[in-house]
Design a protein around this nucleic acid. Structure first.
Length: 579
RNA sequence: GCGCCCGUAGCUCAGCUGGAUAGAGCAACGCCCUUCUAAGGCGUGGGUCAUAGGUUCGAAUCCUAUCGGGCGCACCA
């Protein structure tokens, strides 16, 4: 059930009867204040402006034409031409009854599924995952889960960085270590982060090492078997690390979703040859470049986009073009969504321009780069540890779980050790994810241990707690299988909760359209909050509650718990029965 | 220099295609556990929506300029 859509359709029908031009925006929105009902139709004012008529009069015409019998109790005109709709409680109750019978909780299923390729997480395999990978990984995963729930055909692609220049450096360093007789598995690759730091130091300081590294890249990319064998060791180690992180983070990415940069290697020569042949790419200062006049500066200097380095090497631009070709043509994607930080905005703009011109992206493939902000420290400067290094993601998650455990032990009195461990895990991970997912900012993202691991207010634990409260009631009620009862909405908290429950689908659509899970976070928080108010104000299992009223409230509780669980699951956050 | 993103309560952030009196959480201060889990609820205080113009019935939202912050602009990804 999508109330907003329903009212939009009704308004459009009325517009059509009134002879308003096609495309007039009904502008149906959720009401801004309780006294304005639940929805308001603002389209009359804009339409009146267009037709140069009196908005109030047009609103009155619209009102007499609108067919909202049963749906609305009261439809009134206010101010310059607002139309306020107050929904009928019996109608609401019927919609809720339908949602309760539906495994999809009343959310309709996509009638025209699209093939959507979602590129997310994409860690650099030369290092361990650090906090900078958090956003792409969990935002991408939430959007993927939501798209799948809606019914799209989703193809996850973990565009792992396994082919870059750093691997030359790592291989060169590893080779030296091996010649010193170091035990490979246990020493050299035990801590990829340390290993990377050592190699980087040599790359920067040691004469000759950088050149040697570059030679190794060329050897690797041209298929040298010895180099590939060493390279494979890094890849395997690193993928193992990332799998651990994904599991701990409750992220759906699997080994089969990995489509790393190296997977496009065989396409790169062809891409470059084709760009030359199409006269899109030209030689410039030794490199092969596509000049983009669309992105020229004020003096008319076009923006350069290098597709092949001096000396013949390929770069990520080449790989991303190949990825466009593969996704749009081979996978037949209707939409490609890429989650990376905002610093790559220009790059993806360039990729899309070139890919469209060259035909690597079909016209009917949407290409959505969804950026997010750089991680900042609490002082507003780029985020680092006190020692000046990066924070490993796995360490962050472990700390979250430890902190959660101490809170759980303090608050939960009747849980055994195993239950405490389980709750701590779900609360800690949930808190980290919710803190991040609930933010919309595309610029600065301020990282704060305290904010992230605080378990009060608008946080995952609040939602999880709301869920356990509902479940506790449902357990006590000892409901029979397939319990069902009439829903009667008699009080304000019940109506507020009812309307919110019926806005689940509406919310999911906005999440999908803009690839913004924070909208789902807001919704779930408001739902939990309204349930908490309902819980305090509307007794259920207490004495002197009429059986009909009790059963109706149980129905509302069942729906609330199911939507909370489903919504949190779309965010990749688990719930539990007790906490 | 050019370009992109951003500036909303003390702090962290919402605010959907322009709508009515700009909302949450944290922090502060009251109240509410013999009664369905107090990780909770109810209430109070807190705002020149960076600034200045413009567009219009109506602007936090759109346009222009300025100031402030972040980031990006040729062989890293």
């Amino acid at each position: 059930m999508n109330i907003k859509q329903l009212l939009t359709d009704k308004t459009l029908a009325a517009f059509s009867v009134l002879g308003l031009p096609e495309g007039t925006n009904p502008a149906v929105t959720q009401s801004t204040r309780p006294e304005f009902g639940e929805y308001q139709i603002n389209g009359a004012m804009a339409a009146a402006k267009l037709l140069k008529t009196n908005p109030r009069q047009l609103a009155e015409q619209l009102l007499s034409t609108l067919e909202l019998t049963d749906i609305a109790d009261k439809v009134t005109i206010a101010g310059p031409g607002f139309i306020n709709v107050s929904l009928n409680v019996n109608w609401l109750a019927r919609q809720l009854a339908q949602a309760a019978e539906d495994p999809r909780l009343g959310v309709s299923i996509n009638q025209q599924p699209q093939t959507v390729v979602v590129d997310y997480s994409a860690p650099n395999l030369a290092k361990e995952m650090h906090v900078g990978h958090l956003r792409s990984t969990i935002i991408g995963d939430a959007v993927v889960r939501t798209l799948e729930f809606w019914g799209d055909n989703v193809i996850r692609q973990n565009h792992m960085g396994d082919w870059g220049t750093q691997f030359g450096m790592l291989i060169a360093h590893l080779e030296d270590k091996l010649s010193e007789g170091v035990d490979l598995e246990h020493v050299a690759l035990a801590d990829l982060e340390d290993f990377y730091r050592e190699a980087k130091k040599r790359f920067d300081d040691e004469t000759g090492f950088a050149d040697k590294s570059r030679q190794y890249v060329v050897k690797l990319q041209s298929g040298d078997s010895h180099c590939q064998k060493l390279w494979q060791l890094f890849i395997d180690t690193s993928i193992k690390h990332s799998a651990e992180v994904y599991q701990k983070l409750n992220v759906t990415l699997k080994h089969t979703d990995i489509k790393p940069e190296s997977a496009y290697n065989s396409m790169l020569n062809g891409i470059v040859a084709d760009l030359k042949q199409q006269k899109l790419a030209v030689q410039s200062m030794g490199a092969l470049v596509v000049f983009l006049t669309e992105l020229a500066d004020k003096e008319g200097n076009p923006s350069p986009f290098i597709v092949q380095k001096t000396g013949g090497g390929f770069l990520y631009s080449t790989t991303d073009l190949a990825a466009c070709q593969y996704r749009s043509h081979d996978l037949a994607a209707d939409r490609v969504i890429i989650f990376t930080d905002a610093r790559q905005g220009l790059h993806f703009k360039q990729v899309e321009l070139v890919a469209r011109k060259a035909g690597y992206l079909r016209d009917n493939t949407a290409y959505d780069h969804c950026p997010f902000g750089t991680m900042m420290g609490e002082d507003g400067t780029p985020f680092k540890t006190r020692a000046g290094g990066t924070v490993k993601l796995i360490d962050l998650l472990d700390e979250a779980i430890v902190r959660a455990k101490s809170v759980v032990q303090e608050k939960a009195t009747d849980l055994n050790e195993a239950e405490i461990a389980d709750v701590a895990n779900k609360v800690g991970i949930g808190a980290v994810k919710f803190a991040d997912l609930s933010k919309n900012r595309t610029s600065d993202y301020i990282f704060s241990w305290d904010a992230m691991l605080s378990f009060e207010g608008a946080t995952a634990p609040y939602l999880q707690y709301a869920y356990t409260r509902v479940r506790s009631i449902l357990r006590r009620a000892q409901l029979v299988e397939n319990f069902s009862a009439d829903i009667v909405i008699g009080s304000a908290p019940e109506k507020l909760l009812a309307v919110k429950l019926l806005r689940f689908e509406e919310t999911l659509h906005t999440v999908i359209k803009d690839a913004q899970p924070n909208l789902l976070c807001n919704y779930l928080y408001e739902l939990a909050s309204l349930y908490m108010s309902f819980y305090e104000a509307c007794p259920i299992l207490k004495e002197n509650v009429e059986p009909e009223l009790r059963d109706s409230r149980l129905m509302l509780s069942i729906l609330a718990s199911r939507i909370l669980q489903q919504g949190l699951d779309l965010l990749g956050i688990d719930v539990m029965e007790r906490m």
